[in-house]
């Protein structure tokens, strides 16, 4: 398979997943707001920008972290490369470059998603309308993933797609957990209050994890939720699950047996996955949740860089 084609399918899936997850971040916060007003807490939009890692850019362009500014920045700002609009546009550009490789159903889905986003960007949405807007973004992304699984041969290209989607998802689940860390910071005294529990519940919901969590852990607790979203091997948005599946795709691409490695992508991803597999929650809290998530994101970035070096940037003499 052409390196450029692998790269395009990988990024097509990453961008669709990223769009979905930005919608998830925003949704957590929108839902939190509904409850915080009751509890008399100030609205917090700043943490959302912080977790994207693009705070500086936001402050240069918008200044004040008002609800309106943050929503606009994260959703419809075509000049910000990680806004939902930009992600969907990049996904479509990548899809267009590999139209003859992916199924026409996949192309149609990502094209429809883009046309809908573009139209939405031209309208002025009220806050109320936005509550139903973000679930639509999530659904469009799910449709794309479903159509991909059901219509494209599960070949090398498909595996690059799954690799991209799951690496992206692992990163974003880590960031969603981190949102809670930032929101908690200014008001430690709230820990353990009913409001705190509401916040954790809405965080679970934003990862579509609430119902599955209840079935498994029953009581809502920070420990339980952290464990469920990082170390669970069955829930599809948990970080460990993502790494297990991503690793499987990587090995199907190279043909190397699981448990061994032939390049840096496999070595770094395999090491990260096995560390999580054998890690206890106590160890996570010993490191500190925020520090743990931060390091995890850095290591996921390293895996991404290796994937690029091993498959996309083929050196001239090989």
């Amino acid at each position: 398979m052409l390196s450029r084609v692998a790269d395009s399918i990988y990024w097509l899936n990453r961008y669709v997943e990223r769009a979905e997850n930005v919608a998830r971040f925003v949704e957590v916060n929108l839902n939190l707001l509904l409850d915080t007003s009751v509890a008399g807490m100030p609205q917090q939009w700043q943490p959302l920008v912080t977790t994207t890692g693009d705070r500086q850019l936001f402050e240069e362009r918008y200044g004040d972290a008002s609800a309106e500014n943050v929503l606009k920045f994260l959703t419809f700002d075509s000049a910000y490369s990680n806004s939902i609009l930009s992600c969907v546009q990049s996904a479509r550009e990548n899809a267009r470059a590999v139209r003859e490789i992916i199924s026409s159903e996949m192309w149609e889905q990502v094209n429809t998603f883009y046309l809908w986003m573009k139209e939405a960007a031209e309208n002025d949405y009220s806050l109320e309308q936005l509550y139903s807007f973000y679930p639509e973004v999530k659904m469009s992304s799910h449709l794309f993933a479903g159509v991909t699984d059901a219509t494209m041969a599960h070949n090398e290209g498909w595996n690059f797609g799954r690799l991209g989607r799951l690496l992206e998802r692992a990163d974003k689940t880590a960031r969603i957990l981190d949102v809670k860390y930032y929101i908690l910071l200014p008001s430690v005294k709230h820990v353990g209050t009913p409001l705190d529990e509401l916040q954790w519940i809405s965080l679970l919901k934003s990862a579509s994890a609430y119902e599955m969590y209840r079935k498994r852990q029953r009581r809502v607790s920070p420990e339980g939720i952290t464990k469920f979203l990082t170390l669970n091997s069955e829930f599809p948005r948990s970080i460990l699950f993502c790494l297990l599946q991503a690793e499987r795709s990587l090995h199907q691409i190279t043909g190397t047996t699981m448990g061994s490695w032939c390049n840096n992508s496999e070595r770094t991803l395999g090491r990260l996955r096995s560390e999580l597999e054998y890690m206890t929650l106590e160890e996570v809290f010993d490191i500190g949740l925020h520090e743990f998530l931060d390091k995890l994101q850095t290591r996921l970035n390293t895996v991404g860089e290796h994937v690029y070096e091993d498959f996309m940037a083929v050196p001239l003499t090989s």
Binding site: M1, L2, S3, R4, A6, E156, F160, I253, F311, M312, V314, L316, T317, S318
Partner: peptide, 19 residues
């Protein structure tokens, strides 16, 4: 064009498994 390269006197394309 960026997928192609001349190497060892032949025209080659960059694939995920090398040239």
């Amino acid at each position: 064009g960026r997928d192609l390269v001349v190497a060892d006197g032949y025209l080659q394309m960059r694939t995920t498994k090398g040239l």
